[in-house]
Design a protein around this nucleic acid. Structure first.
Lengths: 364, 364
DNA sequence: TTGAAAGCGCTAACAT
DNA sequence: ATGTTAGCGCTTTCAA
């Protein structure tokens, strides 16, 4: 095990360079307003001593940490099984790296973890938090609020905005409801009349919103055509079996995400139903490793997951940079018509809802 | 965005409780040697003020952080695609949680990330580091050593032990070579004579060791029977195709991990070779979600990945607890004969190599 | 048992 | 442009 030497302090560097601690500090932090020869001497001293600033000491005075926590309210097993998180994390990671901020991933499995995460956030280890995959009645938002850490959520949180706090909740999400509507309309446009829905985990707003979108189009749908899933392939399989049992005449399925859709597809094949001839299937997310690998390839509602991650990070960093984390303006959800690739942000951090697009492949 | 209130200090708590800062501190840290009524008053003040210790200030004096970094030298895409990491992380997470230590996950994609991670570790944010998936010529070990952070590696690092540092390198691994030997002997015992090997990424010691194990048994093997893979299903597919081309008479395959084996299986099926009748296949890892789902279910060399993670964490924490991180005794690799579930650790932190077991399913 | 005081290593006014 | 100095919030001797 590699050992811990007692590291040299700025004091030591200053002494070796023959300058004051203040000058040494200036050089270490960029060297503005220090004359070249001194800069040089300090740099050499740093080099020779192998000096690295003590972050605890620095943070104590600057109150900055150059680190952002990402909190995923989901057990590791799911986090690592679902490409969704990987994509989001990648977007976040890219943005943070560009800002020279360290990504600190906090996984929370059980209730004990929640408390620990709360303490970690409150303890001032990070400048802010990015939180996603929140479930209804999750204690996390409360803890985070208690911790007083600037936070941006991934996906609309499950509580009514503005009721919990003076400062508005900022989140990034895609247009779940609109995307769902588009999917169902597409199925209807194909002439399907017995359109079913496999929901996601209904304690998450994304699932609830997609269900709402489904209902927007299928106003008086037979409840038997709605089966509850949980965003996993297994959940999709189970729901599909249920659907086939309750309504053998089903001719289309809108699944709450691609993973569920892949499960549904498997069951349909097993039961000898041809897709899309007998039953048309649409997913949600357009997760390439899933949607392109299914048989047949999946028609789906695309959302730019990586971009969501990137925006979350950008929103947070922007809020931090301007030091204004209280009483920020809170615009209505918007940007529905902006093209991806543009900067989806306004001047003041406010929630952003990204558009979705239907991607047609073979399954519907 | 939830705001940052200026948090109450210990000073404020002390004032409110009518005690000195020292007494308040004692209570916050367990309350030993403080009389009950005072403890009570301080506790109440903490409660009322919503006091949370400032970790930066605390760390500055204690030099403890109650946090451990996990560094994975692999791009997110792979980290999140391979169940291997999830399992290892789970083991680590459990152990750290039990020690009330926070897991801080640091992903490193490119070279810039390396530098940033190095700075993070050197900056004293964490008490120690757990590092895995190291590749040959990876700059990380050097950076970590420079950072002077106690570290335990997952998987035998690729450099000769002891040559880099006065303090010995501590790692946890499974018996890759022995496991490989057992797999190949099993195939030979089945009467197979044209046994091929699909390697892992050969810049990792696990892959090199498994190849060595293969060679131990197949001393004068035709080089055409060894195809290079990279631990991914796609790599396995590619290697299998190559193998079939070079030696159509191949009658057995030992793949460096289950993921590669699943790719090989796919190609064999596509080419109409029956498994195990025409070609027997063995994998490595026994990752349930993979090995049990293949068709046919995979015979494989089992290693307890979660246990490896757990041991890594335990080893590190032990080293930290005894404060002795330099010049620790370094025993020879051992524990090969211990049963899983026992404590695989001796008194002083030293590397541990866990045994493997052959799990027979249908593919060989 | 409790309090006073020193100081962890650093940054940021403020002087010079 | 450089140095002096006062803390950041906490733990921990040391005295009382």
């Amino acid at each position: 095990m590699t050992g811990t030497a007692s590291r040299p302090t700025l004091e030591a560097v200053a002494a070796r360079a023959g300058v004051s601690r203040a000058t040494a500090s200036r050089v270490v932090n960029g060297g503005d307003g220090v004359r070249e020869p001194l800069v040089e001497r300090v740099r050499r001293a740093v080099e020779e001593l192998g000096y690295v600033p003590n972050q605890a000491a620095r943070s104590l005075v600057t109150r900055r940490h150059d680190a952002v926590a990402v909190v995923i309210a989901e057990p590791e097993t799911r986090v690592f099984a679902d490409p969704f998180f990987a994509l989001q994390l990648r977007g976040i990671s890219k943005e943070l790296t560009a800002h020279d901020s360290q990504l600190v991933l906090l996984l929370t499995e059980g209730r004990d973890d929640h408390a620990r995460v709360g303490r970690y956030l409150a303890g001032g280890h990070v400048d802010g938090a990015l939180v996603f995959s929140l479930h209804l009645h999750d204690p996390l938002p409360g803890l985070i609020q208690g911790a007083g850490v600037p936070t941006v959520f991934g996906g609309r949180p499950g509580w009514a905005d503005g009721t919990r706090d003076a400062a508005p909740t900022v989140y990034v999400d895609c247009d779940n409801r609109g995307g769902a509507r588009e999917a169902v309309r597409h199925l209807a446009g194909l002439g399907r009349t017995r359109i079913a829905h496999i929901t996601g985990a209904l304690d998450q707003t994304s699932a609830a919103d997609r269900l709402d979108g489904f209902r927007d189009v299928m106003a008086d749908v037979d409840p038997a055509l709605i089966a509850e899933g949980d965003f996993t392939p297994a959940g999709g399989e189970h729901a599909m079996r249920e659907l086939l049992e309750r309504r053998p005449d089903v001719d289309a399925v809108f699944a709450a995400n691609d993973l569920s859709a892949s499960g549904a597809l498997r069951v349909l094949r097993e039961r000898g139903r041809r897709v899309p001839d007998d039953v048309a299937v649409i997913g949600f997310d357009d997760m390439l490793p899933v949607a392109e690998q299914t048989d047949p390839p999946l028609t789906t509602v695309r959302q730019d997951i990586e971009e969501i991650g990137r925006l979350m990070a950008r929103l947070l960093l922007r809020g931090l940079d301007r030091g204004a984390v209280r009483g920020l303006g809170h615009g209505a959800a918007r940007d529905l018509d902006r093209r991806a690739g543009e900067d989806h942000l306004g001047d003041a951090p406010s929630s952003v809802v990204l558009p979705t697009t239907l991607v047609r492949r073979a399954s519907a």
